[in-house]
Design a protein around this nucleic acid. Sequence first.
RNA 1: GCCGGGGUCGCCUAGCCUGGUAGGGCGCCGGCCUGCUAAGCCGGUGGGGGAUAACCCCGCGCGGGUUCGAAUCCCGCCCCCGGCGCCA
Length: 459
Amino acid sequence: MFGLVWSTLKVLRESPDVLREVLRKRFMDVSLVDKFLELDKEWRRVQTELNKLRHQHNVLSSRVAGLPPEEREKVVTEAKELLGRISEMEKRLEEVERDRKALLDRMPSLLHESVPVGPDESFNVVVSVWGRARVQQAHLSDFLAETEGKGVKMDYEVVEKDLTGHADILEYVLRLGDTVKAGEVAASRFYYLFDDLVWLDLALLSYAMDYLTSRGFRLVLPPYMLRGKYMGAVEEFTAFKDALYKIDGEDLYLIATAEHPLAALHAGDTIPEEELPKLYVGVSPCFRKEAGAASRDIKGIFRVHQFHKVEQFAYTMPEQSWEVFHLLIRNAEELYKGLEIPYRVVNIASGELNLRASMKYDLEAWYPAQGKFRELVSCSNVLDWQAYRLNVRYLRRKGMVKDYLHMLNSTAIASTRTITAILENHQNDDGTVTVPNVLRKYLEAFSRAPKDYIHPVRK
RNA sequence: GCCGGGGUCGCCUAGCCUGGUAGGGCGCCGGCCUGCUAAGCCGGUGGGGGAUAACCCCGCGCGGGUUCGAAUCCCGCCCCCGGCGCCA
């Protein structure tokens, strides 16, 4: 009955109850379903009406050429009358179509069955933990609540002394960052990093690029800006005002992640089954307005307007996407194990999921000074949400079947945020910070880069 | 940025001047034929509506306009190629 159709729309039409359940689980307005179905029906009705009128008009038009002058005038007049009715119907269609599309744009991806149902992050389910966390006495009960309280046991040691937060290490212990000056000349949430932290940033990117390319991911340096049309197909509408910078006077947006241009890479393409999955690793700066963040994480470089990121991105056959999802999160885990950063992976609760994600795993590092787990990685399967909007399809040779493919994205390493995790977790009593061993080979290339420790700069 | 040429159904290409509703080749899919393969023959191969029907609508880079009728004429934009300019 339906040809090429977004999976959500298919379910919406064929079994609306299933979609109602999805909306309920996501704590969304269930009445959207009925509103949409009504509009969808009307849209189809108006389209049929319009097509009939157009057909009549086409028939008349095609007769005109062969008519003698006196009859021709009559037919032309008749055709002109029809045009009036057609343009009325076109206006009606445009209206209905606009409303229908607006409603469809608010529809989410279907949920994976293992997504925990709940309105907020307290319903997130911890799926794995790794490493030995350093926990200050004052944070012990919080730590236990966030691990054993969630049904997992994580190795830890209680430390007696006070640990220093990343922002203070950055500016007052190492003295390798200046957010005050950056705030003055740019804005808050910008930063200057110096010397060893710049080498560290570079080494982290190299490490992730090396790891992923050696596992078959294709390395990509993408455009850092995208046209509005493509941004709108890749990202949810709310991102435009909360997250994205727009170039003044041009239809261009700065990317907030390499996911954006990597998703747009195959816009309009039909990819043969044998070429899937396509695995990419993008490296790019990321620009984010953080408009919704208010005064959260205002100190340091945990939440900033600009950073570097290595991103995993995959195009898959629909039946492959969950397998690839687990591949992406496993890759991320291996990277942080290498960096010796204790972490947990959480399955994000339904109410916290964005519209695109069918399921999202976050990798959260333990921050011993903050006494919290905080997000370093976000791994999502968006199913055909983006493929539908960007018109990216697979082609199955057998029977020439074409349909939307699946897309997935996952952080590998976001530089500044990973640096904050390293500063907090690898800080030493003497003020130095230990450089993880896996980075050494990427630092060896530079004579002035740190190899074992990052040392404070003397005043 | 300026001047010139161009963008047609996966790929190539005809049609554009002179408006009448997209033709051919390749590839691919399905069928016939064949001991098998090849060749050959037939059909299909952009999107939507409709009952996976008949049939119909839309589609020639994108968006407008003129016309009963636009791939074709007009306007704006995007992209590609060549030349000039500028530039790391």
